[in-house]
Write a protein that binds this DNA or RNA. Structure first.
Lengths: 244, 244
DNA sequence: CAGTGGTCTAGACCACATC
DNA sequence: ATGTGGTCTAGACCACTGG
């Protein structure tokens, strides 16, 4: 069933991968659900099972889907899977204990995209955004002060009450409540001095060195949908990174 | 040619991968050289070409080898390959220009492993180590102050003169001069204040916030062979990380 | 041209999960 | 027992490299 070379020079399995990605993006299969079996997909796309396997292998390597022997292939989710709980959270306790922090929302406001945010999120300057400020607490102690900027168009109905009512990680919240699934992010880290405001919130003196972590997060198709800046005390915590 | 299940429950291709890793570790093929073709390896190990492909695919995913269509499969190296120039160097210029820094060695001394270093490098406390201090300069400006601790047993003959004489990255130096190839590293990042010494070297006032990046680097078989602590000014630079 | 890795297929069997 | 993904094989052909 080898398709003719055609105008596209992409290998078949990457074309299949793109088709699967489109279906995922369109919501044909939702996070946590299983996608059709390899045999069914092979019939659907008129290719061999091996080619489908190859396509799915790429999606699995990108953490878009998760394969479970004997059960099926599932759309990855931020909701379950402790394994990926720390995929987008690199702050760890210095004493080595694994702890997932509690989030406390400080405020939520609607505003217009600044030039910088508009550039990062590919919005028009002045386009409507939602800005959340929150604190991440480990064992009750404030450690991270986050400012999260979101395109309002994608997060209609996001209110303080809904955020507070949700149990789970932020990306789980975005995924289940707004259908926006984060698949990738870039971070830029600097060291800065705490100012009066952030120092007070994080319970450190002004001037204390903090990690400043700026993040752009992307959904399917490399579309940026979140801009974030976190200030983090590293008195009892550190940022963990694995270089492969 | 399916081998009997045997006492090992590992799939064949992972067993092949381990055999290849052993050969790499033993220096049968050196960095930059090509390994035998898939067909030759399949004959050598009495398995099908597909199984060898699978084994090599894992090694390629771990950046242990590099596959080049039409040419062969090569042992990855820190010496060539601009693509991997920044794999272990995450500090970038804030203005976006790609620049590889120049290294200036401050001093090199021999000493004994402290308890902390011994634990990190799996040495006996007091075992001989070599400690390098150096500055990374971008466009002539000091940006990173590194302290690098190495097990003396693996780096015999490492002298200031040899370090200064070498042209290329540090890991390229280790690889070509001492046969120690880094394949993986863990980093822990904190924000600290510059003290008088580091401030002077990095040309910032004491108290300036700096990134403190601690690294343990590993060679084949997850053996730790380098401990490093870098202090980095983030006035014109940042630490880049990609979360996948 | 020959040799390499890259893709695709078809089929067999294994390991695991579920009923 | 059935269905899933995981492994392994054998063979064909494609795309790229270099003599």
């Amino acid at each position: 069933m080898n398709s003719a070379p055609g105008p596209s020079f992409q290998p078949l399995y990457l074309q299949i991968k793109d088709l699967l990605t489109q279906s995922l993006d369109a919501g044909e299969w939702k996070p946590g659900e299983s996608i059709p079996s390899e045999i069914v997909l092979a019939a659907r796309y008129k290719v061999s099972q091996g080619t489908v396997r190859n396509a799915i292998a790429v999606l699995a390597a990108e953490n878009i889907v998760v394969r479970r022997q004997g059960k099926g292939t599932f759309v990855a989710t931020h909701t379950e899977e402790q394994s990926s709980l720390f995929r987008f959270l690199r702050i760890r306790r210095a004493d080595g204990v694994d702890e997932y922090p509690h989030s406390r929302l400080l405020d939520l406001r609607r505003g217009k995209a600044t030039a910088e945010v508009a550039r990062m999120l590919l919005l028009r300057p002045g386009e409507a955004v939602i800005v959340l400020r929150r604190v991440l607490e480990y064992s009750g102690e404030p450690v991270v002060l986050d400012e999260i900027t979101l395109p309002a168009a994608l997060f209609r109905g996001l209110t303080r009450a809904r955020y507070d009512a949700y149990r789970g990680s932020t990306y789980s919240f975005f995924e289940t409540q707004f259908g926006v699934r984060m698949v990738r992010a870039d971070e830029r880290i600097k060291a800065i001095a705490a100012d009066a405001t952030s120092g007070e919130i994080l319970d450190v003196p002004a001037g204390t060195p903090l990690l400043a972590v700026e993040r752009v997060a992307y959904t399917y198709g490399d579309r940026p949908v979140e801009w974030r800046r976190g200030l983090c005390t590293t008195r009892k915590h550190y940022y963990l990174n694995q270089l492969g």
